[in-house]
Computed example of a mutant assay.
Amino acid sequence: MKNYLNTFILFVLVSLTSLVFGQKSINNYKYVIVPDSYDFVEGKDRYQLNSLTKFLFNKYGFTAFMITDSLPEDLFDNRCLALYADAEKLPGKLFKTEVKILLKDCYGQLVHESEIGSTKEKMFEKAYNYAIRNAFESFEFINYKYQPISENANAQIVVNEKPKGDNQDVSASEIVKKSTEIGKVSEIKTEEKAISPEIIEETTYYAQTTADGYRIIDNEPKLIMILLRTAKENTFTVKDKNAIVYLDNGFWYYSEISEGKTLKKVLNLKFYD
């Protein structure tokens, strides 16, 4: 009962702090994406810890997916609709396992972290399971409910400025790019037309078919990355990276979120079996 009361008090204090400083609410995110592995254990979904995390998020009212699941269409259009989960094992205490759950936005900024879940169970499989379950008890007080941010609450997007020395109007694709950078893609209705990218990766990479997607290699041949299929055609997640590779208007793009910034380039990609 004492632990329950302490948890409630802590939640109230965290909530008040968020209101005072005007931080973005956890309710402003539509999905939670759970990775298929954690750093403190080897292998995908080891001890089914990642599946357990997904289950517990859904239990407490979130809409959670594993990164390898079929993901919603709107999430491909705007990755910032989701929070990205992780489980962190705290530095060792003798005879005690401690874990906390982290939720970060698409820029890698911490939005929420759970209380520390702990257990004195000695077997690793049970210890991590119990610790994660205990950490999730603090989510009971969140009462999560998705609340989209109104367009008026977003930062202003300037769409009529022109690059210096360029007399052309800003294209529709540039408007979408600007709105994506503040975490929301505006609904822009315009006639679709193919736009050739200005910069294409000079190095040619080759895609070898695998059971789950493709291996991308260079001329040496050296392994560059591994692509994993998603539910969306011609869109792949990059193994062990917060990145995707996708086809758009006849060009292959690599898009990665690193240190809070979205890095994007066009790949010179050729496919063969």
Rank of each mutant, 00 (worst) to 15 (best):
M1R: 07
M1Q: 09
Y4F: 13
N6I: 01
F8G: 00
I9K: 09
I9T: 11
L10N: 13
L16Y: 07
T17R: 14
S18E: 15
K24F: 05
K24C: 11
I26V: 15
I26F: 03
Y29W: 07
Y31S: 03
Y31P: 04
P35I: 13
Y38N: 13
D39W: 05
V41Q: 08
V41E: 06
V41T: 15
G43P: 08
D45F: 03
Q48Y: 09
L52F: 00
L52V: 01
N58A: 02
N58F: 05
Y60M: 02
A64K: 03
M66E: 07
D74P: 01
C80L: 14
L81D: 02
L81I: 05
A85I: 05
E88P: 00
K89N: 07
P91Q: 10
K93H: 05
L94D: 11
L94T: 13
V99Q: 05
K100G: 01
K100M: 09
K100N: 12
L102H: 12
D105Y: 02
G108M: 01
E115W: 00
T119F: 03
E121H: 06
K122R: 14
F124H: 08
E125V: 12
E125W: 01
K126H: 10
A127V: 10
A135R: 10
F136V: 08
E137Y: 02
Y144R: 09
Y144L: 11
E151Y: 11
A155K: 15
Q156G: 04
Q156R: 12
N160Y: 09
E161G: 04
K162V: 14
K164A: 15
D169T: 09
S171L: 14
I175C: 08
I175K: 15
K177Y: 09
S179I: 01
S179N: 03
I182Q: 15
K184G: 07
S186I: 08
E192K: 10
K193Y: 14
A194G: 02
P197A: 02
E198V: 11
I200E: 00
T203Q: 15
T204C: 07
T210Q: 11
T210W: 06
A211L: 11
D212R: 14
Y214V: 07
L223T: 12
L223F: 03
L223M: 12
M225K: 04
T235V: 15
T235I: 08
D240T: 14
D240P: 01
K241T: 14
A243R: 10
V245A: 09
V245K: 00
V245N: 01
N249R: 08
Y254T: 12
Y254N: 05
I257D: 00
I257Y: 02
I257S: 13
G260V: 10
K261V: 14
K264Y: 00
L267K: 02
F271V: 12
D273L: 10
